[in-house]
Amino acid sequence: MLSVKKNIPNPLKILLIIGFGYFFWLMLKITFEYIPLKTDVSFLMIKQTEVGQRPEYLYFFYIHVYTSIFVLLSGFLAILRKDFGLKSFHKNAGKIYIFLILFLAAPSGIYMGIFANGGVYSKISFVILGGFWWYSTFKAYQLARHKNFKEHKQWMWRSFALTVSAITLRMWKVIIVYLFHPNPMDVYQIIAWMGWIPNIILIEYLITKKYI
């Protein structure tokens, strides 16, 4: 459901695969921290108020964490469609990607966004991110059903740009902390927006230039 109009040079293909593989492994390591189910590790250590006062929070959290890794993988496999010679993966990977986002990853992400660290600005950002993630994926699904594959691809790229915010927000966090050493809550307010807005701007630029 995702493809680019111009062929990607082989060296760039290799770099993209290696780059994604590296960041996917990092995300997988984060996921492994919560297997078996734990409530006092990593991110959950700073969410003990929600863990203690809102029993449903952990359900949404685990749903989001466990499904997001498969969303990343299925989305990337869908991108491999033509340029990487894996066209057979496209349709099935796309179905998995859409199902996981619409029914599990995005709704749980929106719920978690309501309780995000960093105050009201972070909460607004993560709720908008989750809502637009759901909408862009649903829009792509609708367009595919109506055989409008050109716009379908564009909306799927928008959706995947939001999907990889799981990676880019962590990249921005490392950069910002290394360069400026800000207060932890200030970091959350910054990366809440930086994690996905630059991604969307880049995708809109590529769409405008007809690269995708």
Score class of each variant (00 low, 15 high):
A106N: 05
W193E: 02
I63S: 09
S68G: 04
Q53N: 08
N7R: 06
S68D: 03
D186F: 12
T31P: 03
T67V: 00
N199V: 05
E50T: 03
V71I: 02
V41A: 08
F60G: 12
I17K: 02
T168W: 10
Y62H: 10
K82E: 04
Y22N: 08
H181E: 14
I101L: 06
F20R: 05
F20K: 01
S3D: 01
N117R: 13
F61P: 08
S3F: 00
L12I: 05
P182Y: 09
L86Y: 12
T137G: 07
N92F: 11
G75W: 07
Y62P: 06
T163Y: 00
I46W: 08
L179R: 14
E204P: 11
M27I: 00
K5N: 00
F84C: 06
K209E: 07
V4G: 02
K47M: 02
K6V: 00
S122V: 10
Q189V: 11
I128S: 08
D186N: 15
F60P: 06
I98E: 07
P11R: 00
I30C: 01
Y121L: 14
T163R: 06
E204K: 10
L58C: 08
F23H: 00
Y205F: 13
Y178E: 14
F70N: 03
F89V: 09
E50F: 03
Q53M: 04
Y211R: 02
M156E: 11
Y188D: 11
G130F: 11
L202R: 04
V4I: 02
S88G: 08
K210E: 10
L37Y: 07
I190V: 15
I18S: 00
L169I: 12
P55T: 04
L73H: 03
I207M: 10
Y121F: 13
M112F: 12
L129A: 05
Y59R: 14
Y62I: 08
K153W: 09
L179P: 13
L44D: 04
G131R: 12
D186Y: 11
W172S: 15
L86I: 10
Y111V: 14
K47L: 00
P182V: 13
F43W: 04
I167A: 07
K153M: 10
F149S: 07
K91W: 05
I128K: 09
F160W: 10
P198F: 10
F32G: 03
K123R: 14
I191K: 05
Q142A: 05
F24W: 06
Y178A: 15
V65A: 01
K5T: 01
L143R: 09
G75C: 03
P182M: 13
L12P: 05
F149C: 02
F180P: 11
